[in-house]
Amino acid sequence: MQRIKLRQAGWLDRWQSLSGAILAGFLFIHLHLESSILLGKDAFYKVARMLEAGFLDPSGHGYPSVIVVFGLGLFAVLMVHAIAAIRRFPTKYKQWKILKEFSKTVPQRETNLWQLQLVSGFVLFFLVPVHLLGIVMNPGSIDPNLSAFRIVEQGFGFLYMALLPVAVIHALIGVYRLAMKWFGDKLPREKIFKGATVVTCWLILLGTTSLIVWYYTGITSLPTPLTPYSPL
């Protein structure tokens, strides 16, 4: 019985860390790829084709199913992370009360960061599946025109406005805590913290700028009737 308990604790801790690291890494790449809209519709179109494995398709268009499979895989990682992380949530009212009181009497940066992760994690649990399943259930919708339409006309822009800061803050606090958790004896704490802060600011800036450009694109240059973008 004790062995099972031991195994479970170790597994959960490692799966939580590993899945979190994968998701944080994905977020970093995702925001950079998505920001290709800053370079114009053509650049975003090329990125979308590359992600859909257009290089394997003689027509160059690619296979939207690649995104579906990848999205489902990501959803699985998300579930693993949520299941492993949920055990960290205080489960009793008394624990929440202690936490609130403790944060007042012994204020401490990392405890505050963790509480921020608790709240952001809870929010992400509801927001990320909407975004992820929205993409998975609409294969081929990663396109300069269709994405702009989704953001501006279908209101997904509001979802992304909420997702961007919450996801980035949750991820970067997580990366910092992860580094300290497993390599606290090897890594410089304050340098890692500063690095995570810089990356947080960068990603929020990048994502916000991209979102502004998406709105601009959606308002000024959507074809009527709506058709996928085709390069000149």
């Binding site: 308990k5 031991l6 990392e110 963790w114 606290g184 704490r189």
Partner: peptide
């Protein structure tokens, strides 16, 4: 390690680092 390899031990630590500070 058998004594501290569970949720009350190292795997229960949430790296809040108050001990370190």
């Amino acid at each position: 390690y058998h004594i501290i390899g569970d949720e009350d031990g190292v795997f229960g630590c949430m790296t809040l680092l108050g001990c370190q500070d």
